[in-house]
Computed example of a mutant assay.
Amino acid sequence: MATVDDDVLVEAASLGGNLGAVGLVALLERAHEADAPGVSRAVVDAYVSELGDSMDADALRSEVGERLTNSPRWVTEGALYEVANGRVSRFPREWHDELDAGSGLVAFVRVLGADRDGEGVPLELLVAAAATLGGRGEAETRDAVESLTADGVLARADESVRVAESS
């Protein structure tokens, strides 16, 4: 059985019914060092088993399966992605392949935006992807977005971000 981190378990349990499958996978991806994209299904299952007292474990397992897609590209906010054999992520394989800690924030906006048909990248999605795929902190990412927007590199509209047309 996979090892469960007590601090992560407490955080997940505190969210209770508000956590859901996507939230659980997102939490586990940020919390567990990975030698491959995503988090193993065994790790997800270990947490679901431990969380059984605070939520419906069978429903959570079922939700993981229902939301899982093998698409290498972005499908929707509520999807989970099969990114490697037995590994699942909140983000598609293509994003894992193209982005990492060395990728600049503009690269994140370009890659994420390529799958969004010109709609721009929701700021919260950008912050989550930068944390999971790039190891960036939330405040660091938000500050960088503000700075790059002030410099004319990024453009903001409502709660979305895109690369400025002049860039």
Results as ranks from 00 to 15, higher is better:
Val4Gly: 07
Ala139Val: 14
Asp6Gly: 08
Val64Asp: 03
Glu33Arg: 13
Leu125Phe: 08
Ala31Gln: 11
Tyr47His: 15
Val109Cys: 12
Leu24Ile: 09
Leu112Arg: 07
Val22His: 13
Glu124His: 14
Gly102Lys: 12
Val111Gly: 03
Glu33Gly: 13
Leu28Glu: 02
Val145Met: 07
Gly104Cys: 05
Glu94Asp: 15
Asn70Arg: 06
Asp97Gln: 11
Asn70Thr: 08
Thr69Tyr: 00
Val10Trp: 01
Ala107Asp: 14
Arg110Met: 03
Gly17Gln: 12
Gly102Val: 06
Pro37Met: 00
Val163Asn: 00
Glu119Ser: 14
Thr149Asp: 12
Ala128Ile: 01
Glu11Tyr: 06
Glu124Pro: 04
His96Met: 05
Leu112Tyr: 03
Leu126Phe: 06
Pro37Ser: 00
Asp115Gly: 13
Val161Glu: 05
Ala26Gln: 14
Asp7Phe: 05
Ala21Cys: 09
Asp45Ser: 13
Leu125Trp: 09
Thr3Asp: 13
Val25Gln: 06
Val44Pro: 11
Trp74Met: 01
Leu28Phe: 08
Val121Tyr: 06
Ala128Leu: 05
Ala34Arg: 15
Glu146Ala: 15
Ala144Gly: 01
Pro37Gly: 05
Asp35Ile: 10
Asp53Ser: 14
Ser49Ile: 01
Ser160Ile: 08
Gly16Glu: 12
Thr149Ala: 14
Met1Pro: 07
Val163Cys: 08
Leu51Trp: 03
Ala150Gln: 10
Ala144Lys: 10
Leu51Cys: 07
Val145Thr: 06
Gly102Tyr: 06
Thr3Lys: 00
Ala42Gly: 15
Ser54Ala: 09
Gly102Leu: 12
Ser14Leu: 14
Asp35Glu: 12
Ala144Glu: 15
Asp158His: 10
Ala13Cys: 09
Thr149Cys: 03
Leu112Met: 14
Arg156Phe: 02
Thr76Met: 04
Ala84Val: 00
Ser62Arg: 13
Ser167Cys: 09
Glu159Cys: 00
Arg142Asn: 02
Ala155Val: 10
Glu94Ile: 10
Val88Trp: 04
Ala157Arg: 14
Ala36Thr: 09
Thr3Tyr: 09
